[in-house]
Structures are given as structure tokens and as C-alpha cells.
């Protein structure tokens, strides 16, 4: 198995278009603004995936060329936030998050902006990503200079669904090298920590056994993510970046027992969070 924690890199890392660290903080702040008015919501997903999405969208993703699939619809809050951060979505739209009649729905749907595909019914996104990547093969686009890359954000809890492994097998059999899974391994699902519900480990070995290029890293480490993405972009097999993350990362005021899947934000805590993130974002 390939581990991207190794310091030596052959692949050049492109110059960033946005400051990924600031974008990551912006994702957290914007997600907080979306969730706080309701007093609870999918904030933990944005906290855990902030750096993986920040590096992707601030430095790598080519709008109109590449595709972004947000497999777990509950993570759409993070997709909205990062799209607003990098200028792909009007930030004012985020104020309508989860409101009646709004297309900025709390669980991603067909109406959701900022993604090519999202699935409220979990673990279906990779099949869609495989379908995109395989379409490029059918059309002979993989050899083109601006060949699209398909990025699929998945969560570790989704590994419990069989369909995801069906898709993983297909992608590896066909060596879909222009497909990358960004796996937010935050060890959080509805009923509690993932490892208390189902033993998924060793996650990296499972993907490697399925024939994937595997990188496993601290998902809040920007440099480690940069290297992992660079390797994934040059791989001739499908790649998975296993980002080990926390649903409380980057928001120090959260209590240690906060329910990462569905964080409760009473007004006092929300105010502390705003103070903390706005200071860091300024």
C-alpha cells in the first residue's frame, strides 16, 4: 500500500488560487452561520471536512472541467460553504440554508448548487463518480490535455453500505485513474462513533485490497493533503485519500462530548463559536 505520509514527492504541487488555511476557517464559519439559527445541525461534517475541501477547491479543482460528487448529502453544508469561499456560489444564498422553499437544502438534493451530484441516501455517490469517470473513458477523454478528474467526497460511515464496495470493485477493475475518493474518516455516525457500531479498520488495507491507490493521513494537515492530492492526480489507478479527521476540529469551544453527527448549538455556545471563528477568519 502507498502511504502519502512519505516526505519525498515527485509530483509538482500547483500554485494555490486561494489561501487554503483561510478557506478552511471560512468553511467552518459559514457552516456555523447556516446551522446556528436552527440551534442544531450538520456542523460537525463541515468541521471534519474543512481542510480536505479547502485544499481541493482552493488549489486544485477546475470548475467546468472536473466533477465534484458530495456522496453524503449531509455534508452539503460544507460544499455550500467552500463554494461560497472560492467564488462559485453567492454567499448571500447561504442565508436560506434549510429554509422553506430554498434550493440550499440541509440534506443535498437535485436542487443543490455547488456539486455535480449528491445523494441524501448514503453511499450512492461513488457509483455516480464511477459513472462520470467511465463516461470519459467511453468518450476517449482520458488522454486529452484537459481530461476531467472526478472527485468524490465520501464518509467513513458510508463504508458500511455494500454499494460503495460494488463501485470500488468496478473502478479498480477498469483502472479509473482519474477518479479520487476523498474519505472523511471522522469516526462519526448517527448512533455514535463508527468504530463502536461496525469495525471498518483497517480501512486503508481494505481499499488497497480492492486495487486502489491509498493515501492515509491527518485530514487537518494541509501539506499532507496537498501531497496526497498530487499523488492521486498522477495515479494510474483510482485513488482514495483517507483523511483522519475530527468533527470538533477547529472549533475549540465545542464540548468534548458534542455529538459530531448532529451538533447542538444553544445560543451561548453559538455566540462563543462565532467569536472564536470570526477572530480567526479576520
Amino acid at each position: 500500500m502507498t502511504r502519502s505520509l512519505s516526505p519525498t514527492r515527485a509530483t509538482a504541487i500547483p500554485a494555490p488560487r486561494h489561501d487554503a488555511a483561510r478557506v478552511a476557517t471560512g468553511i467552518r464559519l459559514r457552516a456555523l452561520r447556516m446551522v446556528a439559527p436552527q440551534g442544531f445541525g450538520y456542523l460537525g461534517q463541515a468541521l471534519s471536512a474543512a481542510e480536505t475541501l479547502a485544499v481541493l477547491c482552493a488549489e486544485l479543482f477546475r470548475p467546468g472541467v472536473d466533477r465534484f460528487v458530495c456522496s453524503p448529502g449531509h455534508y452539503i453544508v460544507a460544499a455550500y460553504a467552500v463554494a461560497a469561499e472560492v467564488g462559485l456560489l453567492d454567499p448571500e444564498e447561504l442565508a436560506a440554508y434549510g429554509q422553506n422553499g430554498s434550493r440550499v437544502e440541509a440534506i443535498g438534493t437535485e436542487r443543490s448548487p455547488a456539486v455535480d451530484l449528491t445523494c441524501g441516501s448514503l453511499a450512492q455517490g461513488l457509483s455516480g463518480g464511477v459513472g462520470f469517470a467511465y463516461t470519459d473513458r467511453l468518450r476517449g477523454r482520458e488522454e486529452e490535455a484537459d481530461a476531467p478528474h472526478t472527485f468524490v467526497l465520501c464518509s467513513d460511515g458510508e463504508l458500511e453500505e455494500g454499494q460503495l464496495w460494488e463501485a470500488a470493485l468496478f473502478a479498480a477493475h477498469h483502472r479509473l485513474g482519474r477518479l479520487t475518493v476523498v474519505l472523511d474518516a471522522n469516526n462519526s455516525q448517527v448512533d455514535g462513533p463508527v468504530d463502536g457500531i461496525t469495525t471498518l479498520e483497517p480501512i486503508g488495507e481494505k481499499w488497497a485490497a480492492h486495487g486502489w491507490h491509498v493515501a492515509e493521513l491527518d485530514g487537518h494537515d494541509l501539506d499532507a493533503l496537498r501531497h496526497a492530492y498530487a499523488d492521486a492526480l498522477s495515479a494510474t489507478r483510482p485513488s482514495v485519500i483517507i483523511a483522519r479527521t475530527s468533527t470538533r476540529h477547529g472549533l475549540d469551544c465545542l464540548p468534548p462530548d458534542a455529538d459530531g453527527h448532529f451538533i447542538k448549538l444553544p445560543p451561548d455556545l453559538a455566540n462563543q463559536a462565532f467569536t472564536e471563528l470570526e477572530a480567526r477568519y479576520a
Binding site: 455535480d116 451530484l117 450512492q124 461513488l126 457509483s127 455516480g128 463518480g129 464511477v130 459513472g131 462520470f132 467511465y134 463516461t135 467511453l138 455494500g162 454499494q163 460494488e166 463501485a167 470493485l169 468496478f170
Partner: peptide
């Protein structure tokens, strides 16, 4: 292959 769930998901993306 024998993977109907994935087959449907791929077909949806291809249609997109």
C-alpha cells in the same frame, strides 16, 4: 457484473 445498485448509479451518471 453482479452489482445492480452500482449499475443503476453508474447509469444515472452516464445519463447526466
Amino acid at each position: 457484473g453482479m452489482a445492480e445498485a452500482n449499475m443503476i448509479g453508474m447509469a444515472g451518471a452516464m445519463a447526466r
